[in-house]
């Protein structure tokens, strides 16, 4: 009988962590899951062009957690009709971000037809 409060607490923690891990937020272009849903603040999204006509994206991600953490991210580029463009170096990269600090993640489209992008931020721990 003594163990029942412990059991309830354990179940509650498990339940909460399960919900936390499955939460996905998205603003169409940027999707986040895990701790990033609530504690990764997208401060700035900069869209510029380099080398005349190549789309470059800079995104500042702030870690509002009180400890250092890591996340994986992937940029994908789309043409004006929303079609995914092939890139030979597309894939997940990992970034570390100190507690309360921010990092800038960047990507440059290799195809001048790139008109839009999609960014996936996902828990690396």
């Amino acid at each position: 009988m003594k163990s029942s409060p412990c059991l309830l607490v354990t179940l509650a923690v498990l339940l909460l962590s399960g919900c936390y891990a499955n939460t996905v937020t998205s603003n169409q272009r940027i999707s986040k899951d895990g701790w990033l849903s609530s504690h990764a603040n997208i401060r700035v999204v900069r869209e510029t062009e380099v080398s005349d006509d190549l789309l470059r994206i800079d995104v500042e991600v702030e870690n509002t957690l009180p400890f250092d953490t890591r996340f994986d991210y992937k940029f994908e580029f789309l043409d004006a009709e929303g079609r995914m463009l092939f890139g030979p170096t597309t894939g997940f990269r990992q970034e570390q971000v100190p507690a309360g600090a921010f990092v800038t993640i960047t990507a440059t489209a290799t195809d001048p037809r790139a008109a839009d992008f999609r960014l996936t931020l996902t828990n690396a721990n």
Partner: peptide, 19 residues
């Protein structure tokens, strides 16, 4: 390999050297 290629390509495009 993909990570390394991505890093150097971003630097190269940003430099404008190809232009």
């Amino acid at each position: 390999w993909s990570n390394a290629a991505d890093q150097v390509l971003q630097q190269l495009f940003a430099s404008g050297a190809l232009d």
